[in-house]
């Protein structure tokens, strides 16, 4: 027992330095005025008062909500359809498809985003720009959608793989029985597949909410939150507040609000786990 604890020390120290110390520091700085250079000054709840009374903050939260709703539906539906179809494909071909679908996920975000910007959404000669005769990234009403499409391209293949793996665990006799009962493909999906992969499905949806409130890289690389504030999200606002305006205190306060938003689905998930146990 004692040896086990000793063996855990390096990992615990690592976690303490990488996660706990920065987290506590962020919470502390959220109550200070700090420019990142000189000593921080304690100002109580002033940063939070400023944040919550700023209409920009609520606009940004709304952008995060729109982003979340998109990712809770579009990539998930796409991944579920493809994963279901993979079930009807011979095992060898299935492996090949799954690998192909996973390739975008393992590519660096910077490369993927730049590639989409140059090939599909380029304002002068992008393929999608030309097809729709519309500058997606440069127009406020479509900028966030365009970035979400780039992210989806990289993300849905991973989701399809996860769902496919969950579907592989389903006992084939359920499908045979449903078939004998005269169920069509949709009914088999609705009454067999979906209930059987529900724990995985819920977990991925909850994680999607968490990740959606933390999204940064795709947006910062493409539009930096523009045009205007059309694609601004909490993470880009936090970054700009801290590093562009040199308001690290307020930036930390914004970061803690991000954590609060992301904590809600985690709390729901933990509640479900504690209640349902093996079901989720």
């Amino acid at each position: 027992m004692r040896n086990t604890f000793i063996m855990l020390i390096p990992a615990l120290l690592l976690i303490a330095f990488i996660m706990i110390v920065p987290s506590i520091s962020t919470i502390y700085y959220a109550f200070t005025s700090w420019n990142g250079f000189t000593k921080p000054t304690f100002i109580g709840l002033q940063n939070y008062r400023e944040i919550f009374s700023d209409s920009l903050f609520w606009k940004v939260v709304w952008n995060n909500i729109k982003w979340t709703l998109f990712f809770l539906t579009i990539p998930v539906i796409l991944a579920l359809i493809v994963a279901s179809e993979l079930n009807n494909v011979p095992q060898k071909a299935k492996g090949v498809f799954k690998t192909i679908f996973l390739i975008p996920y393992v590519l660096p975000t910077l490369a993927v985003t730049r590639l989409w910007q140059a090939v599909f959404f380029h304002p002068l000669h992008g393929i999608i720009t030309k097809i729709f005769n519309h500058d997606f990234l440069g127009t406020p009403s479509t900028a966030l959608l365009a970035i979400a499409i780039i992210n989806t391209w990289q993300w849905w293949g991973f989701l399809a793989n996860v769902f496919s793996a969950a579907m592989d665990q389903i006992d084939k006799t359920y499908y045979e029985l449903a078939h004998l009962e005269g169920a069509n493909r949709w009914q088999m999906f609705k009454y067999v597949t979906l209930p059987m992969i529900l724990p995985t499905f819920i977990f991925m949806e909850i994680m999607t909410v968490v990740w959606s409130f933390l999204v940064f890289d795709y947006i910062f690389i493409t539009t930096q939150g523009g045009p205007g504030r059309a694609s601004e999200v909490l993470a880009t606002l936090t970054y700009k507040t801290a590093f562009f305006y040199l308001k690290f205190g307020k930036g930390s306060a914004l970061a803690t609000t991000m954590i609060m938003f992301a904590s809600v689905p985690i709390a729901i998930y933990l509640r479900l786990v504690s209640k349902g146990g093996e079901r989720v």
């Binding site: 304002p123 990234l137 440069g138 539009t223 523009g226």
Partner: peptide, 9 residues
């Protein structure tokens, strides 16, 4: 400015 594509150029 940028042929109307200032924000994506």
């Amino acid at each position: 400015l940028g042929g109307g594509k200032f924000f994506s150029l």
